[in-house]
């Protein structure tokens, strides 16, 4: 059973087609990169997988269930592209709230929050208000909330946005450790080099359609980088 699946999915809004006949599946335990230029439909695909939007056609499944069902989202960690944190809450308070909503309580919740803060390096800022943190630190808190309750599925939308080079390296390590734990990872990103390092498969979207997918080694032809392959596949499509 795939961890997540889109089957002939279309999504239209305001007279615009964001996705058209998109089908792909991500097997449990794998790491897949969702690539595409701006407006390709990557974030729309993630919204559908999170149950935040409904497909205009086709079917979306999360562990063989509709993502609109709350139970289908158990064990799911998500980091949005535009991370907005409640500015008046403290780091620890926010993470405790998210851990509670993820189903943890009491000592388990406190332990998960503490571990997540230690892991992303914000433990010394636990009592700071989120509104006072730099963009990089907010992104670290974003990672921390995604790692709460040991998720078995991570959906990361532009995860290295706002991170400095050290933060980017840390993020790669965090994702790598989640993979080692058996977590399924779907990363939507513009940073092709990061995707190449983290993921073993890629799906390339352009104007709402899949223009390439498979193992990175299959997509990249001899003498090409992933960036070259990306440009070839995207530019090769009539616009």
């Amino acid at each position: 059973m795939p961890a997540l699946e889109l089957d002939a999915v279309s999504k239209r809004f305001n007279g615009r087609t964001a996705l058209e006949g998109v089908s792909f599946a991500v097997e449990a335990g794998s790491a897949v990169g969702l690539l595409g230029p701006n407006g390709a439909g990557k974030t729309t695909a993630l919204r559908l997988l999170l149950g935040l939007a409904r497909p205009s056609g086709g079917e979306v499944r999360l562990r063989d269930r509709s993502p609109a069902e709350a139970d289908a989202r158990v064990g799911l960690g998500y980091l949005p592209e535009r991370l907005v944190l409640p500015s008046r809450m403290t780091v620890a308070g926010f993470l405790a709230l998210q851990a509670s909503l993820a189903g943890l309580s009491g000592g388990d919740r406190d332990q998960s929050v503490e571990e997540a803060m230690q892991r992303v390096g914000v433990a010394d800022r636990a009592e700071d208000r989120l509104g006072g943190l730099s963009k990089g630190l907010c992104q670290r808190v974003g990672f921390a909330q995604a790692f709460l309750a040991a998720p078995d599925l991570l959906l990361l939308d532009e995860p290295t946005s706002g991170l400095d080079p050290l933060g980017i390296r840390d993020a790669r390590d965090w994702i790598g450790r989640e993979r080692e734990r058996g977590c399924t990872v779907l990363v939507s990103s513009h940073v092709l080099s990061e995707v190449e390092r983290v993921c073993d498969r890629v799906i390339i979207l352009h104007e709402g359609r899949i223009v390439g997918s498979g193992l990175t080694a299959e997509i990249v032809q001899e003498g090409e980088t992933l960036e070259d392959a990306f440009v070839r596949l995207v530019r090769g499509q009539p616009s």
């Binding site: 935040l52 709350a70 139970d71 158990v74 799911l76 409640p86 998210q98 909503l101 993820a102 909330q145």
Partner: peptide
């Protein structure tokens, strides 16, 4: 509107709740 609900709504919480 400000996006602070987003993360809560991706948790296993029913919309009605």
């Amino acid at each position: 509107e400000d996006g602070t609900a987003l993360l809560s709504l991706t948790r296993p919480v029913r919309r009605e709740i």
